[in-house]
Design a protein around this nucleic acid. Structure first.
Lengths: 222, 222
DNA sequence: GTCTATACCCGGATAGAC
DNA sequence: GTCTATCCGGGTATAGAC
């Protein structure tokens, strides 16, 4: 990725990004050409490629911006002290952030299963952003009394559940994405329920089993 | 999709499909061009397009063939009477079937999150194949004593878990996909465990909650 | 360093002659 | 049913203006 040195360049980059996102939201990712984006930003094709190496690089920049914005919004959201409230808040702020961006999400999830693609959500190219996202979920369990290893595992599990919520969001045709919000609340409740019963049989036996399995499996691609 | 009327046409179609799959397995989906496929099948580009409307249509044909072959193999596999054994058998026969085809799977999962794409695993274009696959899992619960509505739900849940297993398979670098087999066994055990405890508190409360949620959510896209 | 213009390659998809 | 020629868009390359 080209790194513009000047603040003017940075502004232009931002300008192109916004033109691209507007086009993606309007016509979808595949139906938007790089020539459209350049024209929308009022510049030549070559200039657009000067700032973004590829169309995917624009999505990558969006992904990074989205994660930063998500952290900002979550930080300023009134966050309850319970695990369930925190996870619901993480998911709800994200759903609000993505409300108009479902067509862009499609582009992000298109490479989910391609380990070699730089934009793959499980791949190396996205590890920085992914780690920050996983951390948000892991921190939701801070101070909950969950054993440390289980906390780390729960954070990763919640992050994966959050991927499922995003896929559901893309397909959700209900008004104001009501059903996805329902799902998000259920995910929060599920993880919130897990914490107090984590050490109580018979649930503890199930969690031990799951933790043991996760230990043997590792994260995808590892 | 073009439907060749003659048996000679059907043979040509099969011939192209095999050339395409060989190329996909060798070089991956994106690195294989339609010109490569046509050349591999010993014909011109236009001729190949006469049999398959698009590159994705080849993947769709593979998807259909794969489902049929999976049903054949599962039917002839020694299948234990327990739910766990059945689910493990469904997953294991599928993993065997896909052993060399992980690069093709990438193409199938690329449109997972795109509701409008004809190849989307949740979309309309794949509903026939999907329904048959979901049925395999639903039938694994037949005679288990699970209430009917829960059986249907469990079948769908198992099918979705199976999607997760396939994504894990794509990323699995372990020898002979050992780790994916571990995961598949765990999925079988999990659903097998569910059946006898489905009506026993506290598990029944959890399942009631999940069933109620699923009822409100519906399947993705519905 | 920022940007334009233009020509080009490659690969998916199409048109139309035969 | 098969071919050649062509279009279209992502992406590259280059020459040059400021």
């Amino acid at each position: 990725m080209t790194q513009p040195a000047t603040s003017k360049g940075e502004a232009t980059r931002q300008h192109i990004l916004e033109a691209a996102l507007a086009a993606f939201r309007d016509r979808g990712f595949t139906n938007t050409t790089m020539r459209d984006i350049a024209k929308g930003a009022g510049m030549s094709l070559g200039a657009a490629y000067h700032y973004f190496d590829s169309k995917d690089a624009i999505v990558a920049a969006y992904y990074e911006w989205m994660q930063e914005e998500h952290e900002r919004r979550y930080a300023s959201a009134v966050e309850g002290g319970t695990v369930a409230a925190r996870i619901k808040s993480i998911l709800t702020t994200k759903l609000d952030l993505l409300r108009s961006d479902r067509k862009i999400l499609v582009a992000l999830f298109a490479t989910l299963a391609d380990p070699d693609h730089p934009l793959s959500l499980f791949g190396r190219g996205t590890s920085t952003v992914r780690d920050r996202s996983v951390d948000m979920f892991r921190e939701a369990f801070d101070g909950s009394g969950l054993p440390e290893e289980l906390e780390s595992l729960a954070g990763y599990a919640a992050w994966m559940a959050h991927l499922g919520v995003m896929i559901y969001l893309i397909h959700d045709g209900s008004k104001a994405q009501k059903r996805t919000h329902l799902l998000a609340d259920a995910v929060g409740d599920l993880f919130g329920f897990m914490v107090p019963v984590a050490t109580v049989p018979p649930f503890s036996m199930f969690l031990d089993w799951a933790a043991d399995l996760a230990r043997q499996l590792g994260a995808p691609g590892s």
